[in-house]
């Protein structure tokens, strides 16, 4: 691979430059602003904000005599800064407007917007296309070609979103991977998506615990008029949709090395693999909640993944495929 990494040094310096170039016009517009307020607006710590303001205050243009002269530097009201933690820019040089977005930055936001265009909030296609045009005009070069097809959104999404925002309980029939269906009562906490799949995370009343539900396994979704007992600000949610539990079963699979990404979330980041019996093949230990998910995974990746251990797992997979053949009148 000869592609140069996006930067030969830690990306941090580039990000800091973007921050400095963005901070100057903000400080020009806000003639007198508290460090705390500015830090919050940019999502940085107050100390980071102070450090960058100090750097701006000593920066400027080189003079003819190869040294920097006072008038060619930015300046701030140092008393306000040191005594009252307030930023007052008193002199600025060279730049006064926000920088344009780069081609790649624009592409990232545009592709994100394309994906979000299916959300119920974005039913106003005109408003969205106005926003996308504006973004493209703010780019320094034509956006690089990365596009995302509009997400397929389940009809349950608007109902769940509405209940989440107004903090009401929802009820729905939920069919799990085993095929068992049950009516659930849930306080909606967050709607997650993972490519074309959408998930609800919520407080399951019957189980008194946070659970993750696939929207495409729900039916008869209704918002009730009962207030939710827990809001999203009261329950900590982890960043991973599925968490492993001590009761999970360990399964050893053999998989072509090149097909490892196809295992997706079954192979959490950092999972170690071992060399397999043939070149190009590796073994990995997966943690699964039950064999119902595993047999579907093995049947989807036929010829690519082979379950090695334990024997019960192999039997569950073989039986699943055999029943499938029987449905075609084969054996």
């Amino acid at each position: 691979m000869s592609a140069r990494p996006s930067s030969s040094r830690p990306l941090q310096a580039q990000d800091k430059l973007a921050f400095l170039l963005s901070l100057v016009p903000y400080l020009i517009d806000h003639e007198d602003v508290g460090v705390a307020e500015a830090a919050q607006h940019f999502g940085v710590t107050e100390e980071e904000m102070r450090r960058h303001v100090r750097l701006i205050a000593v920066s400027g243009l080189p003079g003819d005599s190869d040294s920097y002269l006072h008038n060619d530097l930015f300046d701030i009201n140092w008393d306000e800064f040191e005594d009252n933690d307030r930023i007052v820019l008193t002199h600025s040089v060279a730049i006064d407007e926000s920088p344009r977005f780069s081609a790649r930055e624009t592409a990232a936001l545009l592709a994100g917007l394309q994906y979000l265009s299916a959300l119920p909030e974005n039913a106003d296609r005109q408003a969205l296309s106005t926003l996308m045009n504006k973004l493209a005009r703010g780019a320094s070069a034509p956006p690089s070609p990365v596009v995302v097809a509009r997400a397929r959104v389940d009809s349950a999404l608007p109902v769940l979103r509405e209940a989440l925002v107004s903090r009401h309980q929802v009820e729905f029939d939920y069919r799990d991977a085993q095929g068992a269906s049950e009516r659930r009562t849930v306080d909606p906490l967050r709607l997650d998506s993972d490519d074309e799949n959408w998930y609800l995370r919520g407080w399951d009343h019957a189980r008194s615990a946070v659970r993750t539900f696939r929207l495409d396994r729900m039916s008869e979704v209704v918002a009730t008029d009962r207030p939710a007992s827990r809001g999203s600000d009261e329950v900590a949610l982890s960043d991973t949709l599925f968490e492993t539990s001590p009761e999970d079963l360990s399964v050893v699979v053999e998989v072509s090395e090149s097909a490892l990404p196809l295992l997706g979330d079954y192979l959490p980041e950092g999972t170690r693999t071992r060399p397999g019996r043939r070149p190009g093949v590796v073994e990995a230990t997966l943690r699964v909640g039950h064999y119902h998910g595993l047999k579907r995974l093995a049947a989807r990746l036929s010829g690519v993944v082979v379950v090695r251990e334990p024997d019960q797992a192999r039997t569950a997979v073989a039986d699943w495929a055999r029943q499938g053949l029987a449905a075609y009148g084969e054996q």
């Binding site: 016009p25 517009d29 930055e105």
Partner: peptide
């Protein structure tokens, strides 16, 4: 991810 976050910094400069 890093590019979209950099774009947000620029967006925030608009206040």
């Amino acid at each position: 991810s890093s590019e979209s976050h950099r774009a947000l910094l620029k967006l925030r400069s608009l206040g």
